[in-house]
Design a protein around this nucleic acid. Structure first.
Lengths: 140, 140
DNA sequence: TGACAAACGCAACCGAGTTGCGTTATCATT
DNA sequence: AATGATAACGCAACTCGGTTGCGTTTGTCA
């Protein structure tokens, strides 16, 4: 399991500071079963009677993304969401009715496809986004 | 190849009107080599000295999407883009440097993966989004 | 040609995300 | 423990894609 203190220690060694906001943003993302948006995180701070300016959240997320600690996702609603960079490469399935989100792992990954595309299209492929949309068990 | 008049004729038979805006939006999407955003389309109208209100564009795109004539895509910049619903199921590869977009067709489609996920997760999968990001030939 | 609904324009609005700038808090050093 | 550098933060104002309500225009068909 991920441990925020350990990650923060690593960042600190690189000249970054260990702040309450940074720790809580990271803890929220580590504990959340699904990716969170910036507004989600701001609401979580508010619920804990720790109001934080939205600019701070955006900057913190940009920082953690830049450090490779978290990654950015989008699920079709023009809002960025974030999750701790996973060890196991996975994608997501989103219920278009109740917004439930679950991780899914492909039986065969896309490496071969990427190689083929890179060769045909002469692109250097860096990453990809793959999300599935449907109706979850409860909603169908 | 797609023919806007033919599509519009079909819509007209269902009680919808044949307007200049509708025809041009559709023609633009048919002719464009890459998906277009609502602002893209508004600019194209302006360039032809045919200023159109942005609300009209958004409503027209929502209409055409609802009719299944076009489909909605997103490439990570919080802006919806649209393309004519393709006959051949394809995805896209986006250059993160110059925003060049090309169609790509997978060697193996994701049907088997979808079936496996549907069974394991008990989701009824309706569709998916898959985009590749990288550096195009010119930019690398 | 008249009448009805679809399509349109306009203005005001919403919400995610950004920018500039001044202030505060963390941390290494003394 | 005091100090200074700078990362982190708050605040206000802003940008921009997208939406809503409402009154007006236009395409279509009888």
């Amino acid at each position: 399991m991920h441990e925020s203190s350990h990650i923060l220690k690593g960042l600190k060694d690189q000249g970054h500071k260990f702040t309450k906001v940074r720790k809580l943003v990271l803890d929220l993302l580590i504990k959340s079963p699904k990716p969170l948006s910036s507004p989600d995180i701001q609401k979580a701070f508010l619920a804990r009677k720790m109001p934080v300016n939205k600019t701070t959240i955006y900057r913190e997320l940009a920082f953690l993304k830049g450090q490779g600690v978290i990654r950015e996702l989008q699920f079709g609603d023009n809002t960025m969401r974030y999750e701790v960079t996973p060890d196991n490469h996975h994608h997501h399935i989103v219920c278009i009715n109740c917004d439930k989100i679950e991780d899914v792992i492909l039986e065969k990954d896309l490496d071969m496809e990427e190689k083929a595309i890179a060769q045909i299209k002469n692109f250097k492929i860096l990453n990809h986004s793959l999300e599935f949309y449907g109706i979850c068990e409860r909603c169908q």
